[in-house]
Design a protein around this nucleic acid. Structure first.
Length: 353
DNA sequence: TCTGGGGTCCTCGTGCGG
DNA sequence: TCTGCCGCACGAGGACCC
């Protein structure tokens, strides 16, 4: 039995949820974004995209491109609720679902009598129940499914074999392939590779020479639309973090420590809520010249106590002593592994002497 | 043009113990 | 006792994704 994978993606998810609550804004350019001087666009409605506004663009620039855009601050609890409703319907249709964030998922349709009809029905259900529009791609693996779902957004429905995907996207830039970002695309261009067809046809030895023994073959396979067809339902988190970008750079170390402690408090509340504890505590510091530095320390026993996380984070910050004004600071806890629950004893034992 | 927040995964260097 | 090798854990940086 051949594998059939679908990728389902809600169109302009955050913006669409906002439009459901404020139907009077329908047809107008809507941007979901924070409001600070350094905010970036989280999602733009398709009307805003017509002006060249896109995700991750500085909001100030988006407003220059589209001055009449309506700015809406993100409301994550609402998006989580909408996402849960969608994923509930998805799970009612298919057993094997790999959720990839709030607005997308891979579905294993292998063995279904009529995969296409099932997906058409699911899309209709999602629209009727939640008001949201989804795009779907179907293929023999996750890569084909994903690229297919992106191909005709919004409300796209694209079914492709691997060979059809190769033919259809042959002339597109490698950047279209998930996992190939700006840096990799630039390096490929230096090798004279500017299309997916060229990537697929490239000498594997040349790719391995340029990108290494793992990434080289991986890129070659992507160029021919070979990819994983395994839908993995459960993805355990491996780290949790909180970070903040200041509206104005902070040079004062005492003030940085205060921010760090506040982030540690938020982080530990999250860790405790999720019943997670980790052994590695790390800080992240981004300076005003955009250099990003991380410092980490691994302790003997897992912790999610704010006194402990906060103290290690402060020590890491003092040891680094940022040499320039800081624009972003963050704290992270990782290495959740093991079932050992933190206790006051272990937490105290793990404190540095 | 002036770049968020929360993640995952990979690579490379280094120190350490067997 | 010394040296080389190997695997592992850890730390740091970076690319990438939504």
């Amino acid at each position: 039995m051949s594998t059939v994978i679908a990728h389902l993606d809600i169109d302009a998810f955050y913006a669409s949820v906002e439009l459901l609550r404020r139907p009077e804004l329908r047809g107008r350019p809507v941007i979901v974004s924070g409001s600070g001087p350094r905010a970036v666009v989280t999602t733009a409605s398709y009307e805003a995209r017509k002006f060249g506004v896109g995700s991750a663009m500085p909001t100030a620039r988006a407003l220059r491109l589209c001055p009449e855009a309506i700015l809406i601050p993100p409301d994550f609890p609402a998006y989580r609720e909408a996402s849960a409703a969608v994923m509930g319907l998805v799970r009612g249709t298919v057993e094997e679902v790999e959720v990839m964030g709030l607005d997308e998922a891979y579905l294993d349709l292998t063995g279904l009598l009529s995969p296409r009809a099932s997906m058409r029905r699911l899309i209709r259900q999602i629209k009727e129940t939640t008001g949201l529009t989804a795009s779907v791609g179907v293929g023999p693996n996750k890569l084909v499914a994903k690229v297919a779902s992106d191909a005709e957004k919004p409300a796209g429905f694209v079914v492709l074999t691997r060979e059809q995907a190769c033919a259809r996207f042959a002339g597109h830039p490698p950047r279209l392939v998930p996992g190939i970002g700006a840096k990799t695309a630039e390096r490929l261009e230096q090798l004279g590779i500017t299309t997916i067809a060229q990537l697929g046809a490239a000498d594997p030895d040349v790719l391995a020479g340029a990108f290494g023994p793992r990434q080289g073959p991986w890129l070659s396979a992507r160029g021919r639309f070979h990819g994983s067809a395994t839908v993995e339902p459960v993805r355990e988190a491996v780290s949790e973090s909180r970070e903040t970008t200041f509206d104005v750079d902070v040079a004062d170390h005492a003030e940085l420590e205060e921010h760090l402690h506040r982030l540690a408090e938020q982080l530990c509340r999250g860790l405790q809520k999720h019943e997670r504890a980790g052994r590695t505590i790390a800080i992240k510091v981004r300076l005003d010249d955009w250099t990003t530095v991380t410092r980490a320390r691994t302790i003997a026993h897992p912790t999610n106590e704010v006194e402990h996380v906060g103290q290690v984070a402060r020590e890491l910050l003092r040891e680094y002593a940022p040499p320039r004004p800081v624009r972003l600071i963050g704290v992270r806890v990782a290495s959740f592994g093991g079932t050992e629950q933190p206790t006051i004893e272990t937490a105290q034992l793990a404190l540095p002497m």
